[in-house]
Design a binder for these strands. Structure first.
Lengths: 311, 311
DNA sequence: TTCATTTTTTGTGTAGGACAGACTATGACG
DNA sequence: CGTCATAGTCTGTCCTACACAAAAAATGAA
């Protein structure tokens, strides 16, 4: 039990693990292999990491989430990594419209009330579906990108998430009142997947299609997803994966889930974390775009009606 | 890179770490010290844990969260631990009223719609404040206890959390409309603290007192809390800690935060995780009960007015 | 190009040891 | 009998150093 020593500014390995989401083992391994990080030691011989190294580690982590590999980026100095970061930014004049830019400015200037009411009025103007497709989803992406480039602090991203979540949850309640209840959809994410907004947007869109959505929030162990499907007689399991979710874990988990569920239960997966997935597990539906959801729900209904004809 | 092998039912150490939140180091240390767990090995010599042992580990984890120490409980057989679990359950005839029991039944019988509408109508009947104090908070506790005793599955707890969260967030929006804006309160939790409901209840209660609540959701690194306080000119930082949050981490983190913040910014902490805290850090307010919040807000206002007289 | 095979890269696993800090028990003293 | 200081025990996290399977990249053949 060696808690943090007050050693000026340098932080112990446990803090680095927490802040970078790189395991202690990995940190020690990189140190041996690449010579970075190169922490100094405290009075007990334990590693302590200077803030500059932690910053670089955070940067490396972000680049890895984008697909870069450790061996290529760890040896590079901080400023070249920053260039890499900027270079990966594709300015999209079509999506990145003025309105989104305004909203981003509200976030970075901490004008919460204005952000909240601007979003609220957009829901009124565009309607819920268009709001999600044209405002909410692009904003989630834009905020993620801005954070990635260091233009937004974590707390600013958190605040946006919170405001958006309040809004979506409020409207999710409204959307639910529809009387139709065709496929029963169970929504959740795998453990360690923190991103709730993607799931929430899917929930609202499906609810608007008249599907009976039962969201379990984020971070459900696979075994519990299986139990929940049985308990609620779900027709579809919808899973959301964010950019940062490790690809091995997602495909591994999906395969495991597919094996554990009955064949007639469909698995729908979506989000940036599975968009560029290589080997798609069998009998799993990949939803690459939010606006494809209505069609998929329709497909499910048609399929089910069809099979009923022969049942 | 040694991902899970398909070895029947036994799971590798990484999965055990994920499911029990016990670190690999701890698992190996217990094996060495206490002879439990005693995993078999796969074809590569890696530990694989039979489900029964994982169950016992989960049980041990829960008991430790309640204050039991490893050395006392690890050597005991599964059934004695179960008794310990039951024994710690205090049946409270005053709080555990019929209504709460009904709601718990809705959860365990997966009657989502009825749960949702029962809660909704209780908000109407009791009003928001009494709903939180008399229904929401007791239910959070009851559900936690029921899960702890194995009477509710994780997915059932998740679903309850989700339903309650939707409700509270919807009403949080309503409560916010009040024009008063006395203390500006920044709400969040430390990293690894997942429980959002406690925070949400506090937010609503404070908003009803006319405080300007800015919730950042869960899991904010301390450094970001400090930045957020500066950016938003917050008067108070409110932190929520659930039962399972390690006490060393909470008091350590609170002390660190206290040092980093200006003296005039108050820190309010609450939740089961700090209820039985031993050494209270200086200049930190511990809120032991939700219904004490109005008084604390009043105290803050009085204090501030008073200091203004002399300013 | 596309597919199959080899090579490199990379993270997670193993073992065993050390020790600081939290907790508990003991004893002295008012 | 309670309170406080001290000694002893318990416990998790850190250390070193090495091994190796699976993923990714590079190579070669069709």
């Amino acid at each position: 039990m060696k808690p943090r020593e007050e050693t000026g500014l340098a932080v112990p390995i446990s803090a680095v693990e927490r802040e970078t989401a790189l395991s202690k083992d990995t940190l020690r391994m990189w140190e041996r292999r690449y010579g970075f990080p190169s922490p100094t030691r405290d009075q007990f011989g334990d590693r302590i990491y200077p803030p500059a190294q932690v910053d670089k580690l955070r940067l490396i982590r972000r680049l890895m989430d984008k697909g870069f590999r450790p061996g290529k980026i760890i040896p590079q100095p901080y400023h070249s990594l920053l260039e890499l970061l900027g270079g990966s930014h594709v300015q999209d004049p079509f999506n990145q419209n003025d309105f989104i830019t305004d909203l981003l400015r509200f976030i970075s200037e901490h004008r919460v009330t204005e952000l909240r009411s601007a979003l609220q009025s957009q829901v009124q103007n565009l309607g819920l579906r268009r709001f999600i497709l044209e405002v909410a989803a692009p904003m989630v992406r834009a905020v993620g990108e801005a954070w990635f480039r260091g233009e937004l602090a974590i707390f600013e991203e958190h605040l946006f998430t919170e405001v958006m979540q309040n809004l979506l949850r409020k409207w999710a309640g409204e959307a639910r009142t529809t009387e139709l209840k065709a496929p029963r959809v169970l929504l959740t994410t795998f453990p360690n997947e923190q991103h709730a907004l993607g799931l929430l947007m899917v929930e609202v869109l499906m609810a608007m299609e008249g599907a009976e959505c039962i969201s379990f929030g984020i971070q459900m162990p696979i075994a519990d997803i299986v139990s929940a499907v049985a308990a609620h007689q779900a027709d579809i399991v919808a899973l959301s994966f964010s950019q940062a979710y490790p690809r091995t874990r997602s495909s591994e988990g999906i395969t495991e889930l597919r094996k554990a569920l009955q064949q007639h239960v469909e698995i729908w997966v979506g989000g940036a974390g599975v968009a560029r997935i290589k080997r798609v597990p069998e009998k799993v539906m990949i939803i690459n775009d939010l606006d494809g959801i209505p069609a998929e729900v329709a497909r499910w209904r048609q399929k089910t009606d069809h099979s009923r004809l022969f049942a």
